[in-house]
Computed example of a mutant assay.
Amino acid sequence: MTTSLVPALQNSYSETQAHKNNHFSSCTLQWRRGQLLVKSASNTQKIHLPSLHDEELLVRCLEKTLVNVVSIDPNVGEYDLKLWVEACEQAGKPIFLRLPSSNKQFKQVSRWQKLIDWIAALFLLVIMSPIMLGLFVILQIESPGSAFSSEWQVGERGKIFRAIKFCTTSNLNITPLVHLMRKYDLDHLPQLWNVLRGEMTLMGSRTCTLENAVRITLAGQQQMNQLSKIKDAWEESSLLHLDSQTL
């Protein structure tokens, strides 16, 4: 089942709100055996479906459907990508960034490596827990508020997840502790939890931020398109050359 959908502005939205929220993108939804594919589409069909640009409605739709996995095209745009990622998180649906088959940066990790990473992460978490607790307490004293922050990252097979870390960016004055944590990457210690959850690995394939993953993917697609155009042009010129010889 394939449906072409273009988010339309509700009558209650003002022009300023619409411009602010960038509700001018379009996407195509394809449902295949419990997997929902979200891809970019042309403005050929305009169907009003508020749930596609309202996060609360989108979360309700995802919760009530039989969708098990969501796969999203990086070409849908920054607004729609963020909307779907956050909605899937609230609905408890895993979401993956669609990657070209030639991309080996986010390749699947073997079960043995996952087991080794899990054991190593658990061991390090036990050993480093007193240090992490001390850092948490000091950060709370220096800058009251949340001691943790998170960012969207892309891992194995393009899975999008929140990578947690100690918050060292909200400090207006760089304290010696913050400088030490950044220098020795101590702010990334909470990501051992991500390793235990199977979202990250200590060795092997690396993760990157969602923004960088989209940039890498789109750049790869553009390069492939350019190579394809060059190949087509070369084949066309070769055929014309052969025809001229025949004549």
Results as ranks from 00 to 15, higher is better:
183 K>Y: 08
91 A>L: 09
235 E>W: 05
160 I>S: 02
40 S>D: 04
44 T>S: 11
135 L>C: 08
105 Q>A: 07
29 L>S: 02
174 I>Q: 15
98 R>D: 11
244 S>W: 14
17 Q>F: 14
139 L>F: 03
20 K>A: 12
21 N>R: 14
148 F>N: 00
3 T>F: 07
100 P>A: 04
98 R>C: 13
181 M>S: 03
98 R>H: 03
23 H>D: 12
29 L>N: 02
138 I>S: 04
242 L>H: 11
44 T>V: 14
64 K>G: 05
48 H>K: 09
145 G>R: 09
160 I>G: 01
165 K>H: 13
106 F>L: 03
219 A>K: 15
213 A>I: 05
44 T>G: 15
166 F>S: 04
163 A>H: 09
134 G>P: 04
155 G>L: 04
132 M>K: 07
71 S>R: 15
142 E>W: 07
21 N>C: 07
177 L>R: 09
13 Y>K: 02
78 E>D: 13
98 R>S: 13
244 S>I: 06
1 M>P: 10
29 L>Q: 01
61 C>K: 11
24 F>G: 15
156 E>P: 09
23 H>E: 13
24 F>R: 13
15 E>Q: 08
136 F>C: 09
14 S>Y: 06
44 T>C: 13
201 T>V: 07
214 V>A: 01
72 I>A: 03
188 H>S: 11
128 M>S: 10
91 A>H: 02
63 E>Q: 15
215 R>F: 02
68 N>F: 05
70 V>N: 00
50 P>T: 03
224 M>T: 04
110 S>M: 07
79 Y>V: 12
62 L>C: 06
58 L>Y: 01
218 L>W: 10
162 R>Q: 11
184 Y>P: 02
240 L>H: 01
137 V>K: 10
43 N>L: 11
118 W>S: 12
42 S>D: 09
157 R>G: 01
182 R>N: 13
167 C>P: 00
230 I>C: 12
104 K>A: 12
66 L>T: 10
141 I>D: 08
234 W>V: 05
114 K>V: 03
227 L>V: 01
